[in-house]
């Protein structure tokens, strides 16, 4: 199938700004799903609130556009009831890690089989450019007119510490890698996290003098490097891209199936 077969064409052109990284993430996600050849009826996309969360409206799957920060909790209910479905949960950085931070770490801890995609543009776009937990120190935002004094999270480290069994990072510049990582993450049985560093030219770029979409994407190329590269040794401040964690641990729904077996065996005794 062509990627157009996976979208709800009548809603295009989409509502995102020119050059918005979220469109690139959508593009990569559709490539990943196309490559996997998944049946559209077997995919449930659950999103929260924010620019990023509008992604669910554009795709022709079962789509659940929920409340701010809680997409993973809704997704947990869907997955527990119908473990055979593929759950994809795209979130913005504020959605996933500020208001949704608790759900994020607990979904990771349970190792429930779903793919969390953090579309990290380091800003609240929908409300007009406030600082997020990923903005980082010194960043300018509408709620940080004198510069941000909040330290930022490292999504990869957070996901690792919380127990996610697949953790990866890339950027919208590295779109082929993004599609590959998403593909791997969807195939992974367990909780997978893919951070995609993304650009918000309208608010982050303008506020922080990083230029337009093109300049922001070039910058992401310059400030990142593949995991374990020589460049990282020379420039330790470079952000690594690639798969950080991939391990097999008991998946939550499979474990619950064993609970059911145990409970029913005891009942028969």
């Amino acid at each position: 199938m062509a990627i157009k077969d996976y979208i709800r064409e009548r809603f295009f052109p989409h509502m995102w700004c020119p050059g918005c990284g979220h469109g690139v993430v959508l593009n990569a996600m559709l490539r990943a799903i196309e490559n996997l050849g998944l049946n559209k009826n077997d995919i449930v996309m659950v999103s929260g609130i924010g620019c990023s969360s509008r992604i669910s409206g554009y795709v022709d799957f079962h789509t659940l556009h929920t409340v701010h920060g809680r997409a993973l909790a809704f997704a947990t209910g869907v997955k527990m009831s119908r473990p055979e479905l593929h759950l994809i949960v795209p979130m913005g950085d504020g959605d996933a890690l500020a208001i949704g931070g608790n759900h994020f770490i607990h979904a990771a801890r349970r190792n429930i089989d779903m793919t969390a995609v953090v579309m990290n543009n380091r800003i609240y776009g929908m409300t007009g450019g406030q600082y997020s937990p990923l903005s980082g120190y010194g960043i300018s935002a509408t709620t940080a007119p004198y510069g941000n004094i909040d330290q930022g999270f490292d999504i990869v480290e957070l996901a690792k510490a919380a127990g996610a069994t697949f953790v990866a990072r890339t950027t919208t510049y590295h779109v082929q890698q993004a599609a590959e990582l998403l593909q791997e993450a969807i195939l992974h049985k367990g909780f997978s996290v893919v951070e995609i560093m993304s650009q918000c030219p309208t608010y982050f770029g303008r506020k922080n003098k990083e230029g337009g979409a093109v300049e922001m994407m070039k910058r992401m190329k310059d400030i990142t490097t593949p995991i374990g590269s020589k460049a990282k040794e020379a420039q330790p401040e470079l952000i690594e891209r690639g798969i950080f964690v991939r391990k097999d641990l008991p998946e939550y729904c499979s474990e619950y199936n064993k609970i059911i077996e145990r409970a029913q065996k005891q009942g028969r005794r």
């Binding site: 062509a2 052109p13 020119p18 918005c20 469109g23 690139v24 959508l26 593009n27 559709l30 510049y173």
Partner: peptide, 13 residues
């Protein structure tokens, strides 16, 4: 196909 893959608007094929 890099243009097709990177287009945020899914406008290129």
């Amino acid at each position: 196909r890099l243009c097709e893959l990177r287009c945020p608007d899914l406008a290129i094929e």
